[in-house]
Design a binder for these strands. Structure first.
Lengths: 203, 203, 203, 203
DNA sequence: CATGAATGAGGTTTCATTCAT
DNA sequence: TATGAATGAAACCTCATTCAT
């Protein structure tokens, strides 16, 4: 088997899974830069050399870890078309926060890698662009429905509000702020979001 | 001379300055991780060892570069107390953008280092906290003056809006978006900011 | 494999042994200070990095070399309880000399390291203390048996006589004195030892 | 002035002296290997570069420090021909001990340098040889006077007894033994010395 | 497939000595 | 002479990746 290819046997699949979950834990613990392939192998209780049976490099396994993370971060975006905008925004923010929470330890590492790995930077850009596009479409729809001021630039607005939510949560977490305040932060994010769009807060 | 001490002679001061500006250029060019002390020394046209006459490590010189950057980023925050809120926000955003623009190449590197260096993370946290406090105070004042909805949490609002502006500009730059759109982005940031606070847009 | 661990395979054990015996030879040849890890690796015909697979530093491998030396230096101390004191001293001195001879090239290096390495200094102190204690016990026994003047301080006497033998041999060797005189020196050491203790020279 | 030459001006002589005494203190404190020229210069409160005005190297200044030490160690050897052997030995041992004591901190450093510096090794050999010769002559004299057993090899005896005294004191000091025991050690050294030679203990 | 040892390029840092002022 | 900066040749150690069993 070539290095990095999908394993065929049951046993191989298990080893590969062990490595991925070990990798995630080690990355969370030490960050990408301070993680050694040896750490991952040891944590997964496999031989050092076995790592390279499944992944061609440390970057490769990180990409796999990140892929699963992105899947989790986007999986829960249920559109729920029936509800009115303010409620949808609140729900979306909460869902995003919960996903963030679930992945709190790995998120800063994602940021870390994004600062120097081009391939990864591109991956993130795409994910973000998709999210912004979705959000932008929603704004346009609300503008057509007369719920949002038509003079707002939908794309830029989507970008800015996504940046606000993303980065606020990111900073909250990396700066290790106390858990108590998070509700206040989330409420504020909802409110600002809704007010910025000029949405009615009651149906 | 021991490493890291302030140079005593004119010549020493000049060499130190050469190193700092060379370091900034090399960091901008290659990022922190891919920068070698050798690159900095070569770029500054001094001997390898001379680097260590002035700085104990790559981290140390980066901290100095960043210090000057932070100074530049905050130096232009002129309060201009007479003007009305919306105008102040617009001006502050533009000033911030101009500073960001001036330092566009080094800003992503700052982010990079912040993801793994604890000392640096703390430095950033402090700078950010100061900015948030200033902004938070302004919001409180406006709330007392009846210009901003008193139900808004001033601190969280300050955090969120700062994150919005910061991160929007950051992403715009690192993702290498075209320069044309920047005006649209800035206008949108102003507008969202003002609307989120519920400020009157005309005096 | 992490540096310094015991190798798990036959091959690993062989490499480790190669390194130790190469190290001993290089240390003998160049002394501790002038030995480079590169020399040891080259002499052992292994890659530079392989050294660090087994030892974290030059000090560490030296400690191992020294450990084996100490083992050799003490292994031959056969008590032979039946014989009378003068004969035992003569035999002990000869055995010590032979061990010294076997390890003549490394002994001065041991002294060298003992002058600046605390860990090693302690190791030597312990070995010496054990030897002194053994010797001291013998003197006490002989005092009880009326063979040695009871007014002698057993511990100090043991220390002094051990220092005499040790250091005489050490100087003889490091000063590269001619091999012919060694018999005269050894005889003199025996005689002084015996006379100092006031032992009868014939049974 | 060429580097290392004797300075001609009053001021130069003072600076040179300052460097020597600073060097001794720093060597005592840190050992030869861990002493940096920078330490010496700083301790002497002279500029780094000034060191090289007076000494061509670290070794050179150490040699000067050691020279003065040797002078002190031998200066007090007053022969006092009138007294009888046992008393002379006792006195010589005490004088040696006092000199050792005065120079306790630097003696181990002397040993250290002697283990790797050829020039210095030779210097020590010479000093030792002189001492051994003096002592050997005394033993011969005593043998002619019928005070010492003529079968003893005077040179080897002198070597052995010198090694005993030297090394016992050396170990006592470097191993940081408590000061209380020193008298017992010195008495034992006297006694062993006298008994080994078979000297009468009373006139 | 698993195992763990082997490799060596690459980067960091030190510091005795030299040099310019 | 005094000063302190400049120099760069060593050494050290790491660790991703490759290889042999």
């Amino acid at each position: 088997m070539e290095t990095g290819e999908t394993p065929l046997t049951e046993r191989g699949i298990r080893t590969r899974e062990k490595l991925i979950s070990a990798a995630r834990e080690v990355f969370e613990e030490r960050g990408f830069l301070d993680t050694r392939v040896a750490h991952i192998a040891r944590h997964a209780k496999v031989a050092y050399g076995s790592f390279y049976t499944y992944f061609p490099s440390k970057e490769a396994i990180f990409l796999e870890v990140a892929d699963r993370l992105f899947a989790d971060m986007t999986a829960h975006r249920v559109p729920s078309p029936g509800s009115e905008p303010a409620a949808r925004i609140r729900r979306a923010n909460r869902e995003f926060y919960e996903a963030y929470q679930r992945n709190a330890k790995i998120m800063p590492i994602i940021e870390q890698v994004a600062t120097f790995n081009e391939e990864f930077k591109e991956l993130r850009r795409k994910h973000r662009a998709e999210a912004v596009t979705r959000s932008s479409r929603a704004i346009e729809r609300w503008q057509r429905d007369g719920l949002v001021d038509p003079s707002l630039d939908p794309e830029m607005t989507a970008r800015a509000l996504a940046a606000m939510v993303d980065h606020s949560l990111y900073l909250w977490i990396v700066q290790g702020e106390d858990a108590d305040g998070i509700e206040r932060l989330l409420d504020t994010l909802d409110t600002l979001n809704i007010r910025a769009l000029g949405l009615p807060t009651t149906p």
